[in-house]
């Protein structure tokens, strides 16, 4: 099967305000297969947002290649196909809603690519239904909660026909309820509509539900694997400025003090079960 996203030797260098060269991404290799739910974690400044912006050609590589379904982001002719294939959801829920009515905002993407009006109508209705926001069709966005606004943003990418959605810390500005809404919406879309998800977050609990976790630091991918593999490496995570889930940490400390516990404990339930 062909990967949806293929990153080969991606390096991103930029000149900052003090005129020094900064390497935000350093020789990244990453493959994401159709239908995968990949979480990317990393401390602030680890380059995860920069990586996200490369995935739909908002940024272009200084070196290396990013291919979306085989289309290279460096080729300008591919630009609009790439942006239709990979949808983006950003951190600030307010700053990505364009129109003053919910359904008009969801229609913004398809309108841009010249879809026929009747077709836009069906796409918008379907997208709003998929994120469970049909009831708010004609509302004004500023009256919605953060979680609802982010769901509108997700609907916006669905209406564009995205097969893959990249979410750049979508829950960073939300309350716990909103966080839950977004995560469960994405898990459902991944399962039911086979949408490929790249979920960038600094909440470890959210990453635990992914198929694969990619750990980034200083512009490099440090290690990756299933949540179980990644989160049981408590010491390494801490060295990178990340906190492993509480259960994994407790198990790790207990093991260190001589207790015999299985190495792959990462959830509270597993920890409790280990004590019988």
């Amino acid at each position: 099967m062909e990967p949806v996203i293929e990153v080969q030797g991606l390096t991103h260098v930029y000149i900052d305000a003090e005129n020094t060269k900064v390497t935000a991404l350093d020789n990244i290799d990453l493959q994401i297969m159709p239908g995968e739910f990949v979480a990317v974690i990393g401390a602030n400044g680890s380059g995860k947002s920069t990586l996200a912006r490369h995935l739909n050609a908002l940024l272009l590589p200084s070196e290396g290649h990013v291919k979306i379904k085989g289309m290279d982001t460096m080729e300008e002719d591919n630009l609009w196909d790439i942006r239709q294939t990979v949808g983006m959801v950003f951190q600030n829920p307010d700053n990505q809603i364009v129109a003053a009515i919910v359904e008009e905002d969801v229609a913004f993407g398809p309108e841009n690519i010249g879809v026929l009006p009747e077709e836009i109508r069906t796409r918008v209705d379907d997208a709003l239904k998929a994120v469970d926001m049909t009831a708010y069709r004609t509302h004004a966005p500023h009256l919605l909660s953060g979680g609802q606004k982010q769901r509108i943003a997700i609907a916006g990418t669905l209406a564009l026909g995205s097969e893959c959605i990249v979410l750049d810390e979508p829950t960073a500005m939300l309350d716990p309820k909103g966080r839950k809404e977004i995560l469960s919406t994405m898990l459902r879309l991944n399962k039911e509509k086979k949408i490929t998800v790249v979920y960038i977050t600094h909440f470890m609990v959210e990453a635990m539900l992914a198929d694969r976790v990619v750990v980034m630091s200083e512009g490099k991918i440090r290690f990756q694997g299933t949540p179980r593999e990644v989160f049981s490496r408590v010491e390494e995570l801490e060295r990178l400025g990340l906190e492993a889930p509480l259960a994994a940490k407790v198990a790790f400390e207990l093991r260190k003090s001589g207790m015999k516990l299985p190495k792959e404990i990462i959830t509270n339930e597993e920890l409790a079960a280990a004590f019988g």
Binding site: M88, F90, N95, V98, G114
Partner: peptide, 25 residues
Amino acid sequence: RRADDLAVAMEARCYRGGEGRTRMH
């Protein structure tokens, strides 16, 4: 800052001016 964010978000959603644009309503 909002303007900057919004511009990026619009670009990510294939905005490229009025050329070839349709309207739902």
